[in-house]
Computed example of a mutant assay.
Amino acid sequence: MHGTFAPPQDSPLVDPFARRITYLRVSVTDRCDFRCQYCMAEEMTFLPKADLLTLEELDRLCSAFVARGVRKLRLTGGEPLVRRGLTTLISSLGRHLKSGALDELTLTTNGSQLARFAPELAAAGVRRVNVSLDTLDPDEFRRITRRGDLAPVLDGIAAARAAGIAVKLNTVALKGVNEEQILPLVAFAHEAGLDITFIETMPMGDIDGDRTDHYLPLDAVRRQIETRYTLAPSAYRTGGPARYMHVQGSGRRIGFITPLSHNFCESCNRVRLTCTGTLYLCLGQDDAADLRAVLRETDDDRVLHAAIDAAIARKPKGHDFVIDRPGAAPAVKRHMNTTGG
């Protein structure tokens, strides 16, 4: 895969609120080998292959954003590692790391395939991954994921670390589901030398239930953690929305992503590209741009960059997530696996 992208490097992507876009999250597939309760319905209809961007098209689009000042690429899904040929794409995008145009190429994974692919990811330049892990109880893990097994995920975490890839755990806080796992997960992370981030459940898509039943504000999670650990504010940032605390005496960090209780829109530097080439300007808004049509209509990258500019000019100030009304419809109808986790 290759491409030539020649817009001037002094033409960064800046939205109407003077926020510079430096972070692109890219869903490479809507498919997943899990069916996590907060992410999707148990019976899902996935996209036909023809609707997905090819690996070459994904490369072209990612490279266009890198040429405009995006410094961080995160590949997501669904589960990104179930996309056939993904490591070929990652190896190709690694040229931007070598050139210095890109600071980081990373991915978010459920960990189920990580043991298999960790050496290839490391060879391609991936230095950090996020692994979703909501419980350490094997039975509860299967209930949350509806079909996953915990052991391969733990093996994947170990394999990634052995390959030289730093691992951060992501945990969705679910009232009445994994509240009792908060402290065990923190202990596991810190004993293994890992950071961990807790995330509030987001009102996206029909999940065969009412999210208000499981919404757990992270203020409550933090209070639980502070019964055992002393937390201190941290200036550490990864380029994403998490706000971190140091755990005194351990050298590790705990992150909190609070899109509902304390949103982080004022500093948003991100846009999201789906596996069909739809560019979402905000996780919690439906406005989007169809970049697949542009890709397939012309090889002229000037047209592509014009389409990207037009989209960024519409980026909203913030999202409209609300979850405190029992029975309320999702804020957006698309599932998280469609937008990219």
Rank of each mutant, 00 (worst) to 15 (best):
G3T: 14
S92D: 15
G164Q: 15
T45C: 13
I21D: 08
L216C: 11
R314A: 02
C39Y: 02
I199K: 11
G327M: 03
T201F: 03
P184N: 12
Y38D: 03
H319K: 04
R211A: 09
A159K: 07
Q113W: 08
L47N: 10
T145Q: 02
A118M: 11
L24Q: 01
L136I: 04
G239T: 05
L89C: 11
G100V: 02
K175G: 07
T227S: 01
K72G: 06
C265F: 12
E180V: 09
V303I: 07
T276F: 06
E179A: 03
G125F: 04
L86M: 03
R84M: 13
M336P: 01
C36R: 00
I207L: 03
A187H: 11
A328R: 05
D51Y: 09
M202V: 02
A163P: 09
K333N: 13
G3V: 10
R60E: 12
R31C: 06
A162L: 14
L47Q: 14
V294D: 10
I225T: 03
N110M: 07
T88Q: 13
G318C: 14
G3K: 12
G156S: 04
P203I: 05
D210V: 09
R314V: 00
R211Q: 11
H335W: 05
S99Q: 03
G341P: 00
L107H: 06
E43L: 13
D219T: 09
K168M: 14
G3A: 12
D15I: 07
R95M: 14
R253K: 15
L183D: 01
L194D: 05
R302K: 03
A160G: 12
A242L: 09
G277Y: 04
R83F: 10
S99W: 01
E104F: 02
Q37F: 07
D149L: 07
L97N: 10
T276N: 12
A50Y: 13
G255P: 05
T108E: 00
S250T: 15
I254F: 09
L93M: 07
H96E: 08
P259S: 12
L61Q: 04
E266F: 14
I21E: 07
R95G: 10
E57H: 10
S261H: 14
P16N: 07
I157G: 03
V271D: 12
Q224R: 11
V172A: 07
R161A: 13
I225F: 07
Q181G: 02
V70G: 00
V294S: 10
T227L: 02
E226D: 09
Q181I: 00
A232W: 10
K317S: 15
G78F: 05
N263Y: 15
R292H: 15
N337R: 00
P184I: 09
S63H: 02
Y236K: 06
R334C: 06
F46R: 08
H246P: 02
F117T: 15
R68T: 08
D320F: 09
A64F: 09
E140Y: 01
N337L: 07
A122P: 11
L169V: 15
C275T: 11
T106A: 04
S91D: 15
I90P: 00
I157C: 05
L105M: 07
I157P: 01
T22N: 12
A307T: 01
